[in-house]
Nucleic acid binder design. Structure first.
Lengths: 225, 225
DNA sequence: ACAAAAGTGTTATTCATACACCCATGC
DNA sequence: GCATGGGTGTATGAATAACACTTTTGT
């Protein structure tokens, strides 16, 4: 039943951090939508849909993100075009996939309806189509990019403590980092400036608040902007 | 005059090294094809064309590469999907672009006809569509990836001297490298094994020949293969 | 006082870089 | 012999990592 042209779709892997209510440890979560028709009816799938002919690709990713979560991403990047013949039953579909980071505080307040839920990437069920592969690849990119760029800030608000920034790295990279060395690494990177304020109310020494130096891009994408 | 669906195309940036006949310095070259119809008739463009509905994306990139140059790439990777509305006059076109590396010796023997030529990336003319941006981005990826992967081997034959391998790095990274340090870096990486043979006939000490350890991928692409 | 996390100091180790020098060949 | 690039040795400084220690708060 092949037709003349392949169908173009845009999907997005949206990452946010959530802390486990019992252990308090942050992990990576994604929103998914329930498929309300065949194929894969009932299964969870990445937010997305067919590309309208007048929409830019990134535009389309942004609007699907807004529609399903009510959120605006603090970081958005193209991931990959998945186009294997047979990856979807029926007509040929080529999906251009984006990945996005949203602020964790906002994500907690995000829309959750009958057909939208957040899942932990630690224990994903079987998703629709090849979406498990897509999420795995997006996670791999998130983890490798976390090591050499400054995307961690996209999970945080305007101001943050170094402990919070470290927590982001630990959640994504899945290993503890030495607080002392982490502090020095960040400080010497010059990407962060102290606000002069402190967080009080904790039962220990108040932590200094920092702000991200907005004149620096979160990641170097070369000639693309 | 927009139609219902965007048109899907696949193009490829094909890299090879050529040494300047006068200076003897290697630089990066790409093959381009002349457009024989509007839009941009007469301009040079990247090899590519519309995606046939039964072709896999990578498959399509491979066959365009074979058709225009008669070559098989030693490395092929998806670069990016370019889809900005208005990047091509007429119907909306989304191009999924691959980049490829071909062995330099073979490339010298590659097909060159009336409508195909090789251009130095050092002095590119104005290409059709947004292909200058695409080449710039591909070059950026090539250069950054050269620093942390082993793709340099894709430019070389089965056996090579460390001087040849170093020449590849120097050509792409556009700066001289210390032969002594380069040697140690490569040797400690364990990606290369001496064949036991030497290159004689030079007017200096014979250079040891090496072979790439085929059990290691040229680049780590994570969960994708 | 004590716990807990913020923040500083110190040292060992690995890695990058620069460069002096010896080796083996063709001429 | 000399020129040329192949190949080895070694010193220096920077980046990374491990961990002891001091500071400042709440209870």
């Amino acid at each position: 039943m092949s037709q003349q042209q392949a169908v173009l779709a845009v999907s997005t892997v949206i990452f946010s951090l959530r802390s486990d209510p019992t252990t308090g440890i942050s992990t990576v979560w994604i929103p998914v939508v329930r498929r309300i028709r065949e194929p894969h009816e009932g299964r969870w799938a990445l937010p997305g849909g067919p590309l309208r002919v007048d929409d830019d690709l990134e535009e389309a990713a942004r609007s699907h993100l807004l529609e399903t979560t009510g959120l605006t991403p603090k970081y958005l990047e193209q991931l990959y075009a998945f186009g294997k013949v047979g990856r979807s039953p029926g007509p040929r579909v080529v999906s251009i996939v984006y990945w996005a980071l949203v602020e964790s505080d906002e994500a907690a307040r995000a829309t959750v309806g009958e057909n939208v839920t957040w899942l932990s990437t630690d224990e994903l069920p079987e998703l629709a189509f090849d979406h498990n592969l897509i999420v795995d690849y997006a996670l791999w990119r998130l983890r490798t990019k976390m090591e050499y760029s400054r995307i961690a800030h996209a999970f945080l608000g305007d101001t943050f403590t170094l402990a919070q920034l470290r927590e982001v790295h630990e959640a994504v990279r899945q290993k503890p980092l030495d607080p002392a060395n982490f502090r020095r690494t960040i400080e010497s990177s010059k990407t962060v400036v102290p606000t002069g304020e402190f967080v009080t109310g904790t039962r220990h020494r108040p932590a200094r608040l920092y702000r991200y130096d907005g004149s620096i891009d979160l990641a170097d994408s070369g000639p693309l902007q």
